[in-house]
């Protein structure tokens, strides 16, 4: 009986811990990270970005922009109010610009798993 209570307590405790620490349960699952484009600027590189994760850009501007990597690994137009996604493959830093408005510059920092 006592061991039964202890078991229930352990399971409950683990469930609570996992609910509050979702990173523990999904650390190795690919994640989706969102970057907002607005007022002629890219948002910052999302923290905790790893190979296999998806990066999703949302263009909240009224202008056509592009997501154009300096290393040519991607070059995608993004219409006003549209969303585009890529999956990052390798760790490292990828610099990218909007080819239509080249002073819009940003980078993705992909951390090793």
């Amino acid at each position: 009986m006592r061991s039964g209570i202890a078991h229930i307590g352990l399971v409950t405790g683990l469930a609570i811990a996992m609910a509050f620490l979702p990173g523990l349960s999904s650390a190795k699952e690919p994640a989706v990270h969102r970057i907002v484009i607005g007022k002629m600027a890219f948002g910052p590189s999302p923290p905790g970005l790893h190979p296999g994760d998806t990066v999703e850009w949302v263009n909240e501007d009224i202008f056509l922009h592009s997501i154009t990597a300096e290393d040519k690994s991607f070059d995608i137009d993004i219409a006003p109010k549209a969303t585009v996604r890529i999956v990052v493959k390798n760790a490292g830093t990828i610099r990218y610009i909007c080819k239509y408005h080249p002073s819009m510059q940003a980078q993705l920092v992909v951390e090793p798993k």
Partner: peptide, 9 residues
């Protein structure tokens, strides 16, 4: 202001 950023570009 958004226009100004765009036109500076």
């Amino acid at each position: 202001q958004t226009g100004l950023k765009l036109f500076q570009e």
